[in-house]
Simulated scan of single mutants.
Amino acid sequence: MTTFEIYKRRRRYISQSTRIILISVGLGAIGGCSTLPAAGPTSAQIRRAETKDNQTGFQIVDIDAATTARLAIHGATTTPLATLDEVGRTDTLGPGDTLSIGIFEVGVTLFTRGNGAAAQSSFTPSASGTDLTVRVDSSGNVQLPYVGRVSVVGKTPGQVERTIEQGMIGLSQRPQVVVAVKTNAFNVFYVSGDIRTPGRFELGLPRERLLDAIARAGGTTNQPNDMIVRVTRSARSAETRLSEINASGDQNIALLPGDRIELFNRPRTFLVFGATEKVSQVAFGASSLSLAEAMARIGGPSERTADPAAVYLFRYDTSLGAEPKPIVYRLNMIRADSYFLSQRVEMQDKDVIYVSSAAANAPGKMTQIIGQLFTPLALARSLTQ
């Protein structure tokens, strides 16, 4: 066989292979467009999923004027910290407090009468009176010489003064008692978490409020929109975002002894999928965010692959009842009024935005695939000619 005959046979083989591949690809293109790579379901596929194999029971709701009235930005609608607010005092004594008790007498005094009594007591006689330092025990009592056990828990220093004076009647001439808190271990609150100076702080006589306490602890270095404030009082606790606490609002509760304040970072985010420039998780970065602002942050629908008439907001909605319901809100960005409506829809934490791929993308993708398949064949054919 000559070289020319070998060359002709090779060309016939390549031509036959090319025709076979063309036929195979053409047949695949007729019935296989739905299996082409895609960023997610098309609008038609989402509509079909609502009525077929809908395991979560989601519903598709168009964003219109009626829907927007329910989804509009209203600001903070709940005040969870306000449920902890109650009347209380910060001037009473409790276990662990260290008290300074001054006792003043006239004439022959009880505490200086006889060296034996003075030597056996934990007090210091002076020209003007006697100073004692005592600690409130776990039962809320203090032990005083001659007077005995005195219950001070839940009482103010003034009430304890009168109690001690009553106990000294008949033992001393016109006794006068002054009680002061030397070390405060009961009227305190605690601040922990993402705060500059965590620790234990004493409560002043005027009832301090929550924002005052956070300021005393140095505040936080993070954005208030991302910070959660949790207050635990006795066996109850509640939390809200720091940005939702106003100085004059009912969430700026007055503190009580033993309150524990925790601050931790929990940014609100939404997720982006589908025909956009990038699948991502995006932080709110503000106290409130509208759907229009969220779309702008992700760069909007892709001009090359997206169907702007099919932008979906996936959400477990709690505005329709006590139990969260899976709702898919559909926004048609081809309509001009949708840009007004989307400005009023408030984003919620962990919302999912999905931009559907355009159905017209399938033929274009098939053309790209065919071109990629035949580029090597064309190159081989040119080399054999």
Rank of each mutant, 00 (worst) to 15 (best):
R335E: 15
T232S: 10
L379M: 13
F264Q: 06
I23Y: 07
F189R: 02
T42L: 07
A213I: 11
I6F: 07
A82H: 05
G88N: 13
N115C: 06
Q143Y: 15
I21H: 01
S243Q: 11
L205D: 14
I63L: 13
K325R: 12
M1L: 09
T83V: 01
S34G: 11
N184G: 02
V328L: 11
Q143I: 13
F123A: 11
V152S: 02
T375E: 15
A292F: 01
L373Y: 03
S288K: 02
D137F: 11
A254T: 13
L205N: 10
E323H: 05
Q59G: 08
D194F: 06
L93W: 10
E262S: 06
D317M: 08
S121I: 12
A127N: 02
V106W: 09
A362L: 09
E293P: 02
R70V: 06
E86K: 13
D91E: 15
V153R: 08
T56K: 04
A275M: 01
G31C: 00
G148L: 10
T92C: 08
D53A: 15
G116S: 14
A65R: 14
N187M: 14
T197F: 07
Q159N: 10
R12A: 09
P324I: 03
N184P: 08
R381K: 08
N332G: 05
G140H: 05
T276L: 04
S138F: 11
S338G: 03
Q343W: 12
L331S: 07
I60H: 10
S34K: 12
V229Y: 06
S287R: 15
R19W: 08
Q173D: 14
D307V: 08
T197L: 02
E165R: 13
F123W: 13
E277W: 00
F4S: 12
G364Q: 08
T90I: 14
L271F: 15
Y354L: 03
G321S: 12
M347G: 06
F201G: 01
G300Q: 01
T83A: 09
G258A: 08
L313T: 07
L99D: 03
P145T: 02
T163C: 02
V311C: 10
S338T: 07
A360Q: 04
T77D: 03
N246G: 09
V152T: 02
V177Q: 00
A72H: 04
G219S: 12
I353Q: 00
F201S: 07
T68C: 04
D259T: 03
G31Q: 10
T3Y: 14
A286I: 11
I369A: 14
S302Q: 03
Q143M: 10
G371H: 15
F314P: 07
T269F: 06
P308N: 03
K365S: 11
A286M: 00
P224D: 14
F340V: 08
V179I: 09
G170L: 05
K155L: 13
L263M: 12
P376N: 15
A283G: 09
V160P: 11
I101S: 06
E105D: 05
G299L: 02
E105Q: 05
G88I: 09
T197A: 09
R162G: 01
L36D: 05
V188I: 11
Q385K: 13
I369P: 05
Y146H: 04
A286L: 00
